[in-house]
Structures are given as C-alpha cells and as structure tokens.
C-alpha cells in the first residue's frame, strides 16, 4: 500500500507546488493547503503503514496487541494538522487584507510594501 500512498504524496506535492507558483494570491493559499496534506501524509507513510490496528491499549492489558500502527507519526501529524489550520486561517485573512489594501490579487502587482499611489494620496490628504 505504501506504493499507492507514495504516488498520492507525489501528486499532492506536485499540485501544491504548482499552485504556489501561480500569480494569483488565492491559488497560492490553496497550494499551501495541498502542501500541508502532502507533508502530513509523508510523515504518516515513511515509517510504514498498517491496516486497521490503531495504537490503543485494550481494557485490562498494559500494552497494545502486536502489530499496531506507529503512534509517534500520528502524534506529530495531529499537531501539524492543527497548526496547519492556524496558518491557513491566518494566510487567508492576511490575503484578504492585502487584497483590500493593494486592490489586486496579482502577486506581480504587489511588489512593494508601499501603498499604491491612489490610496497613498488619499492617506496624505487626510493625514
């Protein structure tokens, strides 16, 4: 099964990177999502996978029944999923504000931290 997972991981990485190379900021954010799926699955797969044996200790026993899935990657991925969500949410909102400020979502038009001329003039007139 690792072979199939490997193909999926490759496809997710390819799609994620391709989307991050777009000029539209919305696509970049979507690419970020795909990349985090890819990274999570990578961690999940590299140590080998096992069908249907969650790392749980049955009632009354002191250790799980062999064989069982490796718990460590799962713990790492759990953290990664949650942090990934945090990053995703922040990126989306930041992107929304950047779009409001710059008036475009084309990355090539957003080349500096200065405001575009029109709104800077407005700011100076009031400031």
């Amino acid at each position: 099964m690792e072979v199939v997972l490997a193909v999926i991981i490759g496809a997710l990485y390819a799609a994620g990177l391709y989307m991050m190379m777009r000029r539209s900021l919305a696509k970049v954010v979507i690419g970020l999502s795909l990349l985090s799926y890819a990274a999570n699955l990578l961690i999940f797969t590299v140590n080998g996978v096992m069908r249907g044996r969650p790392p749980l200790v049955p009632e009354g026993a002191v250790r799980p029944v062999e064989p069982f899935a490796d718990p460590l990657p799962q713990a790492l991925i759990l953290t990664a999923i949650v942090i990934g969500f945090g990053v995703q949410a922040f990126a989306l909102v930041l992107f929304k504000r950047a779009y409001q400020a710059a008036g475009t979502d084309d990355l090539d038009q957003i080349r500096s931290t200065e405001l575009p001329k029109k709104s800077r003039k407005a700011g100076q007139a009031q400031g």
């Binding site: 490997a6 193909v7 991981i9 490759g10 990485y13 390819a14 391709y18 797969t45």
Partner: peptide
C-alpha cells in the same frame, strides 16, 4: 514550465517515499 518543475518535484517525493519504505 511550472507544471514540469512541480511534477518532477512530486516524482522525486514519490521516489523518496518508495526508497524509504
């Protein structure tokens, strides 16, 4: 151009997973 680069990166990741597992 981007697709070729992204796909080769994906292929590399697939290969790495296969080697490791």
């Amino acid at each position: 151009r981007d697709a070729v680069i992204a796909l080769s990166a994906g292929a590399l990741m697939t290969l790495l997973v296969l080697i490791v597992t």
